[in-house]
Simulated assay, not measured.
Amino acid sequence: MAKKTQPPQRREDSLSRDRIIEAAIELLDSGGDGGLTFRALSERLATGPGAIYWHVANKGDLLVAACDTVIAAAIDSCAQAETAGETIRALALGVFDAMDEHPWIGSALLQAAEQLPMVRLFESIGQQVRALGVQQSSQWSATTTLLHYILGVGGQNAANRLSAQMRKLEREDFLSEVSSVWSGLDEADYPFTRSMAEQLRSHDDRGDFLAGIDLILGGIKGL
């Protein structure tokens, strides 16, 4: 009796926009912006570029979508705290950690200033600033100050991490190297920087980041 031929099995994870975005994030995490190409994406998804273009218009569209997925997840993971200030701290730290885990986000956000990822973050911060009781006339400056601080410090931290990775340095080795440079500066010209050289070796990036958020929140209370 002839053996029946089994029909080809349909892939359970049929191609979708969400699956494309997930694969794009994986490529961005491993190779940065340069690692995200439609050829690499096609290979990872075992499909042709045409199938991908059915769901996303171009690389820019895909980069924004990937960025929004990560930012939305970071915001959703931050539970509403007892106070607006604590919620802002949790939100800021969530985005900081997301940028540390996905270092490409910083530049992606700058390229998408008017699009959903930035708007989503701006809205989340702004709602909490309003909940703090800040006057309407000061809500813009308070919200943008927090936004710029989060993106600036988070982006610089991510850039430092990438720099260390490219040079195949562990964080401690990287900080030790920079600390040694600071220690060797001319004391007459750079007395403060020299005095901070040892502290640089052991500082906590997340702790310093939150200290800055607290300084801003302290200023906002006076508005």
Rank of each mutant, 00 (worst) to 15 (best):
A65D: 09
D61W: 08
I88V: 05
S16W: 07
I20A: 03
G155D: 05
Q139T: 10
Y53V: 01
A159S: 04
G222R: 14
A23G: 07
L63S: 10
L132Q: 10
A73P: 05
G60E: 11
A197T: 00
T193V: 09
V178K: 07
F174H: 13
R89F: 03
L175Y: 08
L185D: 02
A159V: 01
G48L: 07
A65Y: 02
V181K: 13
G126C: 10
L147Y: 01
E177C: 11
A113L: 15
A66K: 06
M99D: 01
M1P: 12
D76Q: 15
S183W: 05
A23L: 08
S77N: 14
G34W: 04
L200W: 01
L200A: 00
A92Q: 11
D76A: 15
A164Y: 03
D189V: 05
A24P: 12
A40M: 04
I213Q: 04
F174S: 12
S42E: 14
G31V: 12
L175E: 02
L210P: 02
H148I: 05
L36I: 13
H55C: 11
R206T: 04
D33S: 07
Q136T: 15
Y190I: 00
L162W: 02
S195W: 12
I150C: 06
E12K: 10
I213V: 12
G154L: 09
C67H: 01
A51P: 06
G207H: 05
E22H: 11
S107L: 08
P49F: 06
A113T: 14
R39H: 07
Q156L: 15
A188M: 05
I25S: 03
L200M: 03
E172I: 11
D173M: 13
A73N: 10
A108P: 08
Q115A: 04
Q6C: 05
D214C: 02
L151F: 00
S176Q: 12
A57N: 13
A2R: 15
D61E: 13
A24R: 08
Q127W: 12
R130C: 06
S137I: 14
S16I: 07
A92D: 07
S180H: 06
N58T: 09
D97S: 08
